[in-house]
Amino acid sequence: MHVSFQVQAGDFSNAGKVSSTVKGILKQLNLGPVHVKRIIVALYEAEVNVVAHSYGGTITCEVEPESVDILVCDTGPGIPDLDLAMTEGWSTATTEVREMGFGAGMGLANIRKNTDRLAIDTGEGKPTKIHMCFDLANGAAHA
């Protein structure tokens, strides 16, 4: 199954709508609650990052019997120092983002914690591509 969504930069009132829709799809597909939760937590953090830090982007989800692949692509402005950005507590978030309850520098770390494989392609002035893979091939895969 393949689904794709647009995410608008700065649209905080709708941040989370894509994750909510994907959560509904995963539950309809009978994925187990443990898998649904870690996939959706990672996706929600990534979606909020696109809204909060980028010029906007797309989220594409591929659901296969053994895995879920999610690609989050924005149009920039990129992360100059990815190692620093992956450090818990480091953040460039604006006051507006912090007022939304985010921006404490935990987003990328939360994403890493919940994914089985994570690849991030970024750089100063470049788009950011986050590829998150989740394996479903264990006993907790289905409810």
């Binding site: 905080f12 009132s13 941040a15 989370g16 994750s19 909510s20 959560k23 609650p33 939760k37 959706i40 937590v41 929600y44 909020v48 007022e99 939304m100 309850g101 985010f102």
Partner: peptide, 17 residues
């Protein structure tokens, strides 16, 4: 238990079950 009264508080609860 939170003092954060905005959409993201509800969304976060939803995502976290």
């Amino acid at each position: 238990i939170t003092g954060l009264s905005n959409n993201q508080a509800i969304r976060t609860a939803e995502m976290s079950d």
